[in-house]
Design a binder for these strands. Sequence first.
DNA 1: AAGATAGCTGATAGCGCTACCAAATAGCGG
DNA 2: CCGCTATTTGGTAGCGCTATCAGCTATCTT
Lengths: 365, 365
Amino acid sequence: MEKPSRRSGGSITVQDVARSAGVSAMTVSRVVNGGANVRQSTREAVLAAIEQLNYWPNTAARSLAAGEAAQIGLLYANPSLAYLSNFLIGALEGARKVGCHLVLEPCEGDSAEEQAEGARRFASTAVQGVILPPPLSDSVPVRDELDAAGTPSVAVAVGVAQPGRASVRIDDRAAAQAMTQHLIDLGHRRIGFVAGDPNNGSSAERWRGFVAAIEAAGLDLADMPVEQGYFTFRSGIDAGEKLIDRDDRPTAIFASNDDMAAAAISVAHRRGLQVPEDLSIVGFDDTSLATTTWPEITTIRQPIAAMAEAAVEMLLAEIRDRRMGQGEGAGEDRVLDHELIVRESSGPAPVAAGRPGMARRRPAA
Amino acid sequence: MEKPSRRSGGSITVQDVARSAGVSAMTVSRVVNGGANVRQSTREAVLAAIEQLNYWPNTAARSLAAGEAAQIGLLYANPSLAYLSNFLIGALEGARKVGCHLVLEPCEGDSAEEQAEGARRFASTAVQGVILPPPLSDSVPVRDELDAAGTPSVAVAVGVAQPGRASVRIDDRAAAQAMTQHLIDLGHRRIGFVAGDPNNGSSAERWRGFVAAIEAAGLDLADMPVEQGYFTFRSGIDAGEKLIDRDDRPTAIFASNDDMAAAAISVAHRRGLQVPEDLSIVGFDDTSLATTTWPEITTIRQPIAAMAEAAVEMLLAEIRDRRMGQGEGAGEDRVLDHELIVRESSGPAPVAAGRPGMARRRPAA
DNA sequence: AAGATAGCTGATAGCGCTACCAAATAGCGG
DNA sequence: CCGCTATTTGGTAGCGCTATCAGCTATCTT
């Protein structure tokens, strides 16, 4: 005769799995967690039982037994609030799934000292790991501080994988290449590029993607005017003016993010140019800005929420591994899919072929 | 000889409190939770012990023993992402404190059916309560659906308390009155008002606050031009144009939120007016927009994060009460402090006294 | 071949709290 | 002052999981 659990509507437990797999509860626990020292055949049997019974560990029991709070930190520094929202939505979902709590900590200031200070605040709190959204994901002081404290971390939206450090990102290079190809397919042969902040790893990757597409199409990189930007609207104005006021104005501008693309659009409008009829302008990131300008911006969408969710999941896996004495994980680098979003700001190159920029230069003011 | 706990660095437990208060652990639990049937003197002894030992219940153990997941829902519908960020930051902090998880659910669409659908999604999920940020806090379909399912909810940022429903809000009326008084103190005697969305409870309160200040100052409400707005930038443009193009243009405009204030500023600039020299314009909410326009907007700050945190805390208290069979709580209405933030968009009324609007009307274009 | 080493598994004992019920105490009319 | 009900309190038994350590099976040594 079964004795039905007193409370909690009979959800399946380790015991059920253990019985089904013909092992002890302890072995199931080992398999579920990180599974040091479990024979392969045993592991498979347990996993099969878990699968079959659709078992999910009870997070409350888990943290109670493990005697730990299971809190993970999220250190953020003045990103756009829209980005943070999306990031939080994903992180929250991830935290719920793995059954841990999110502890937020704002990090003011750009100086190395202030960033290190932000990271240190987590050392004192009881968090088992930290996830770092941009721009902190590229911060060396933060990284050093965390490493010194032995706190695992996951960097989100970095340009390239950092050795020995877990990261979640999109393939900035491939995305930029796809975007550039989109412009080339529309007939553009002279494409201006606005680079992003040189301190940011993604900037370099986006530039490389641009170069790769240009070269793959057999075009001459020397024909592509390039201006330095810093991911801010203001820097986009400056870069946009320089590109648009050239005698050999490009027929398209690829800005390294949406803010700078929006800025370029406003410059174009001030100069009396139609977007995209006279000039195509594209961005990157698909922030809310991309749809609150006119025309709406063709851009690259990053799966922000999914990236945050993945980061939480990876971090917790690493925390478990460390606790089970697996040593440091290899620092997984997970790359998620991006998406090219074609909106109204990009269109066919103007028909006046050959030297499009020259053909309709506006009269000097 | 004490046997030191095997794991978990000796944090204080119910047992410690029970011993210190000279009661059983069970009694401590009762006091901590909702405390049905505990003698007053006993309760006080326990509370004193809790205070003295600085005891905090272990949330993991609690939800494990209670056999419940302790999840609370957050139903959101296209607010500004900046608002959502702040809200989430507070809600997360609150959830961490009370030891429950947040489950987010987006609610698309404005129709009654879609809103009810959003609320229903929570009935199927296992959440014990729901918190509702604006604009859903005013939604009747959502409220009805939740009530029908017997799910407790807390409405955040409603205009006035709803009978039988817990709510967290600021005193919109007092805030609007303070803002209006600020303008009157600056010498303005003809103040234009842009009303908010008529479906929103806060709108009416802000209007009442405006009226109260005008009347308290002995001014004639009939001198105050009023336009209907809908909390959108676009509606602010229309309302701003109507107010600014009047022959008896007001010397100040009080828009019911920052978006509409920003819109009014852009209209003023297009008409060649200086803000605040020729025209003061103030907003409400202190969203990020307030500091990304020029000049920065004088506005009312709502403690968004604190409101969200309070909402979580109140909701959990209600959930506990219900479980302990305390019957439905009275629906507490908590009012948090707002703050008048004076920035550059408000200044003294133009010196041409008496009929300020008339005195410097711009020549017809 | 006996002993040592390493790898794998299970029995036991809680983690801190609360549900359940039994026991004790208080209140009250007769 | 006694039974009786109403209220308050405590004892016991887990909630589902994991740390610890003992036992057990292969794989090496010498």
